[in-house]
């Protein structure tokens, strides 16, 4: 028969394991839930997906910005680097942000930092050798094999929406073979 102290130790150890495992899993679970919500919309790994402008029916993420156009790519660098080239909408804010599988934002570049040109980013795997790349490309090591590229493009003028939307749809995301 186990004594009370043994039971208490069992409960304490299992509670600690539950606590740390649960905390660790939350970001991955949140990321998986977003991916699951987007999969029916045709989202595929290492391909760009241009989401429709958020409106009252949007349910992918809470508090979406109705003034932003979101383009995203679920990347996986397990089999090699992935190249992301943004569009270059003019006279408005846009940014390319990279998130690891645990939701950490490990890189961001905005339109001003890109000098009004397309952002050209090559993502390679954690601890993988740095790939060869064009001199204009930025090489970024991802802390995880999988993650998300999120391109935000601001609609700062409703009259220019077709132009802004057209420019952001020039973005690409694809495996990079050098």
């Amino acid at each position: 028969m186990m004594r009370l102290a043994t039971w208490a130790l069992y409960v304490a150890i299992l509670a600690c394991i539950t606590y740390f495992a649960g905390l660790y899993a939350i970001p991955f679970g949140v990321m998986a839930r977003v991916e699951a919500r987007l999969s029916p919309n045709g989202l595929k790994t290492n391909q760009i997906h241009h989401a429709d402008r958020p409106n009252a029916t949007s349910r992918t993420v809470v508090r979406p910005s109705p003034d932003l156009l979101y383009s995203l790519c679920y990347f996986d660098v397990s089999s090699g680097p992935v190249r992301v080239v943004s569009g270059a909408p003019q006279d408005t804010y846009w940014s390319v942000a990279l998130y690891a599988s645990n939701t950490d934002n490990f890189f961001v570049l905005n339109d001003q930092e890109a000098g009004g040109q397309s952002a050209d980013i090559i993502i390679y795997g954690p601890h993988a050798p740095m790939p060869s790349a064009p001199s204009t490309a930025k090489l970024v090591e991802s802390p995880s094999r999988k993650g998300v590229v999120l391109i935000r493009t601001l609609i700062n003028d409703e009259a220019k929406l077709p132009e802004i939307d057209g420019a952001r749809r020039q973005a690409t995301c694809s495996p990079w073979t050098g």
């Binding site: 740390f20 905390l23 660790y24 939350i26 970001p27 949140v30 990321m31 977003v34 993420v61 940014s95 942000a97 998130y99 645990n102 939701t103 950490d104 934002n105 961001v108 998300v148 999120l150 935000r152």
Partner: peptide, 21 residues
């Protein structure tokens, strides 16, 4: 912000997913 602990990362994931700095 950059997460510096598991707790902070879980808080950001639940309350500010895909936020920018």
């Amino acid at each position: 912000s950059a997460a510096s602990s598991w707790t902070l990362r879980a808080q950001i994931a639940l309350g500010g997913l895909f936020a920018l700095k």
